[in-house]
Design a protein around this nucleic acid. Structure first.
Lengths: 124, 124
DNA sequence: AGTATAATTTCAAGTTTTCGCAAGTATGTA
DNA sequence: TACATACTTGCGAAAACTTGAAATTATACT
């Protein structure tokens, strides 16, 4: 039986991991399917090493998995529903005074979950 | 129309805010209903100033609200569903190698959402 | 072997968070 | 007024996180 303190500690690790704009975008991008480092970097307009470092962290915590193919390292979400769960947080952004207009919330949700990006596979 | 970068930035603020064991426990405690600072501090075995500081942060971001009654400051969750949403993250802890035994996950979920604590009001 | 591409690793400076304690404010009570 | 209770604020040191650039590893191609 884990204590509440223990559970809170484990949860805080996950939250800390997700609490970074780059990592949130990487996760949302991976919701569309497997991606290699270079593709992620160019799509998110980030430097290659940055993306690699983030992926390393996330892999350590079991959030993403890696599949190597030649010199390409393909990453994907271990639990795709993580992406939708993250977007669910917009409702709490709304309730906080973070200047996201109510009308924008819907747009924000659709932004990632819609199919306006090239998807090679859609998680169930 | 907010850009993905903007949305990711706003989300990361919320995640950063929640990414602290004390604050997670405070939020879960408040799920049972309104609490004053001293009660929270003694139940969570934390010093008064710490709890007060955390609540201040959370209030700034619209996560909790304050109701003063004499010298008592009662805090409550602006959006109670935040507490359940946080506990939902246990599924991602499970998928990660954070040494939470599979069998313990259920216990963890029940831990906070069960009625083994004195609740003066149960949010809908 | 030599070169190019894809990705990872290292490292140090800079920034942000966390933490505990002391001091301060506000309200109630004698 | 004096004193106690409830809570908040300020502050500085320690810890953690972020960031970019340079160096390194691994694979592919000629």
């Amino acid at each position: 039986m884990p204590s509440r303190v223990e559970v809170a500690n484990k949860l805080s690790v996950i939250f800390k991991l997700i609490a970074h704009p780059d990592r949130i975008r990487i996760i949302e991008e991976l919701y569309s399917g497997e991606r290699d480092v270079g593709t992620l970097a160019s799509r998110l307009e980030l430097k290659n090493p940055r993306v690699s470092q983030h992926l390393h962290e996330m892999k350590l915590h079991g959030i993403v998995s890696e599949r190597r193919e030649g010199r390409y390292h393909h990453y994907s979400l271990v639990t795709p529903s993580l992406a939708t769960w993250i977007v669910d947080a917009t409702q709490f952004v709304e309730s906080s005074s973070l200047t996201l207009e109510p009308a924008q919330i819907d747009a924000a949700r659709k932004l990632w979950m819609s199919s306006d990006t090239n998807q090679d596979e859609q998680p169930a």
